[in-house]
Structure formats: structure tokens, C-alpha cells
Amino acid sequence: MGKAVQVDGRDNVATVTSDVSEGKVVEVLSPEGDILRLRALDDISFGHKIALTDLDQGEEVVKYGETIGIASRPIRAGSWVHTHNVESARVPTSSLRRERP
């Protein structure tokens, strides 16, 4: 079973603390000690994020209780959340990739 940490109770993503493979159950520990279990829909590496809820395109991605970016496509609970489906609200990461190959 994989493990993940939710840093703030308001977060809709958690960070996995071990490499997780697709289909595995991930146990998410909330800051208060509550446990949420969900199935990983993708392979997710240590330090990367897993969606805790379904997110619509344009919805805010919340970590640390703050908006860390905007979903650039719909994201299902259990999916890997990273630059392929989230854009910075401030600096689009895709533009950074274009400018800095």
C-alpha cells in the first residue's frame, strides 16, 4: 500500500511519500491524523502529488491550504497531478518549458 501526506485539511491534493504504482491503494494521512484511502489511477513517484477529489478544468489546485495552480484539464481523484494537468496561475509552466528547453 502507498502512503501520502495531506499538508492542510483544505488541500485537494496530497504528496506521496513512496513510489506508487497504478491500481494500488494509497493511504492519505491528514494533518489531524485522519486516514483517507483511494486507488492510484497512475504511477506516481515519491514527492509527486495525487488528486484527492475530482477536479474540473479551470478548478484551483489547493496545497498548503493555498492555490498552487489551476487544473488545465479535468483531473480524476487518484490521478497524478503535475505539469501535464496543472498550470501556474502566475507563470504558465508550459511557457517555461518552451523558453527553457
Binding site: G47, Y64, E66, G69, S88
Partner: peptide
Amino acid sequence: IEGGLTTIEEKSLG
């Protein structure tokens, strides 16, 4: 980015 940080906001908030 390889380590899992998606945006500059996330990095700074950390």
C-alpha cells in the same frame, strides 16, 4: 519539476 514541484507557487509555499 522532476522532484514533484509543479508550480513556482508550490515551491515558495513549501
